[in-house]
Simulated scan of single mutants.
Amino acid sequence: MPHTPELDEDDDLDRVPAPKPVHYAEQALLGALLLEPARLADTEPLIAQHFDSHTHAMLFTAIRTLPPPDPADHAKDTAWLNTVLNHARPHAPGLNASYLHTLVQFCPLAKHAAAYAKMIRADNARRVLCAHAERLASTAADPGLPNPVASVLGMADDIGRVLDSLTGQFVPHPGSFPRTALPPDVPRQASEEDLDEERLLLATATAYPAEVRHMRWLTEADFLLPLHSALWQSITALVHRGGMVDPVTVLGEAQHRGLLTGTLTPKDLMALVSTPAGSPEYWGEKILQRALIARAQAVAARITAYTDDPANTPHQLITGSRRALADLNALRTRWNRATAPKSASTGAPARSGPRPRAGPPRQTAVTAASSHR
C-alpha cells in the first residue's frame, strides 16, 4: 500500500479547505472534453459563467471557441491540446500543459460529460441564488434608502425571476421540499421612535375609528410590542363590531382581554390612547413598512440557509425559496392595499385636511389631543 505521510498538527495544509464537489465535476468534464471534444454537444446549456473556478471557465471557453480537431488526428498528437492551452493561458496565467494532462487522467468516463455538466449547473444555481439572497438582506438592512419598500421588493422580484429561469432547467422530483433546519427568527429591534409611532397609531385610531374600518391590511403581527398588538386588536374589535370607540371603551375591551396588570393601570392605558396626531393610515403604513422590511430579512436568511445546505438539490432550493418568497408576497399584497389610491369603489372615506397622510411634527400631538377632547 502507498504510504501517506502524516502532517504535523501545525502544518498549513491542515487549514486549507477541501475542494467542493463541483471542483471535481469541473475537472471531470474538462478532462472528458479534452479527451473527446465532440462531447461538447452533450453539455448544453452549460456556459463558462456556470463554472466556480475561473481557470476552468477560461479553459471551457477555449474548448468552445476553437474548432474541434479531427478525431483520428487528435488520437495521435497533442496539437489541439496545445492550441487550447495557448488560447486559454492569457486569461488564466497559472494554466500549464501539466494541468491539462492531469484533467485528462482524472476523467472517469468521457461519456458521462452530460452528468458532470449538470452537476456544475446545479452548483452555479446554488451560488446565484445565495448571491441574490445576500443582496436582499443587505438592501433590507440599509437605513439610507429613499424608498426601502420598493428597493426590497425589487430585489425579491429579482429572486423570483432567477427561480423562474431555474425551474425550466431542473427536473422536479419527489421530496422536493428542503429539510434544512432554518435559523430562528431574529428578534426585531424596537427603537423609541418606532414604539412612539405605534403609540401614535393607537391614539389616532381611537380618535378616528371610521378610518380604522378600512385598515384591514394592518395586523397584530406587524407590531413590535405585544401590548400595542393587543391594544390594536381591542380597537379593531370594537370598530368591526360597530361599537363606540373612545379611551374608556378601549379600556373596557382591554380589561376583557386581560391586558390590565400591575404595571399597566387603567389610567396608563387611557393615557396611551388619548393623544392623537395625524392620520391612523399614516402611522399604520410606517408600522407595516417596518414589518415588511423585517420579513424580507427573514426570507433572505431562510434562502441563504437553503443554499448553504449542500444536501439540497436544485429543485429543493427552488421549492423552498418560492415558499419563502410567498411569505414576503403576503406582506406585499397588504402593502399594495394600504398604499393604493382610494376610490369610491373601496368605500374608504377621503382623508380630511386636519389629518393629512403625512405625519405631523411631534410637537403637534398635544394640540391635536386637546382639540379632540
Rank of each mutant, 00 (worst) to 15 (best):
D309R: 03
E36L: 05
S98N: 10
V152G: 01
V128I: 15
L317S: 03
D52T: 10
G347I: 12
L231Q: 02
L66G: 03
N124T: 05
T265E: 07
L166D: 08
V162S: 07
H228M: 11
V16Y: 14
A75D: 15
Q289S: 14
G242C: 14
H101Y: 10
D268V: 05
V186Y: 05
G258M: 04
Q169W: 06
N336F: 04
R161W: 07
G353P: 00
V22M: 14
L7E: 08
R241M: 10
P247E: 03
P2E: 08
L288M: 05
L224M: 14
A92M: 13
L251I: 03
N329M: 07
Y306L: 11
S371T: 09
V16A: 14
T339C: 11
L251F: 06
R121L: 05
V186T: 15
A72C: 02
L227Q: 05
P5H: 14
L231C: 06
S191F: 01
L288E: 01
T333H: 02
R337G: 07
T180I: 08
A141D: 01
W217E: 09
V128K: 14
R126M: 11
A113S: 12
T333L: 06
I120M: 10
S151Y: 00
P172R: 13
A271W: 04
S138P: 00
R351I: 04
P2N: 11
A114G: 13
N82E: 13
L251V: 00
T43V: 15
D157A: 11
M270L: 04
S321A: 13
E198M: 06
L264T: 08
A141N: 06
R161M: 05
L7H: 11
L218T: 09
P178H: 09
A291R: 06
A369Y: 08
H101K: 07
L292S: 10
P93K: 09
P266D: 09
R121M: 07
S165N: 15
I235F: 07
L30T: 11
K286I: 11
K20W: 03
W283T: 00
A271S: 14
L145P: 02
P314F: 02
A18M: 15
T180Y: 03
L33A: 01
L269V: 05
P5E: 12
A369S: 15
A110L: 06
R290D: 04
R337P: 01
A131P: 08
A57H: 06
T83A: 14
R241D: 15
P209Q: 09
S151C: 02
V212D: 00
N147V: 02
V104M: 15
E36P: 02
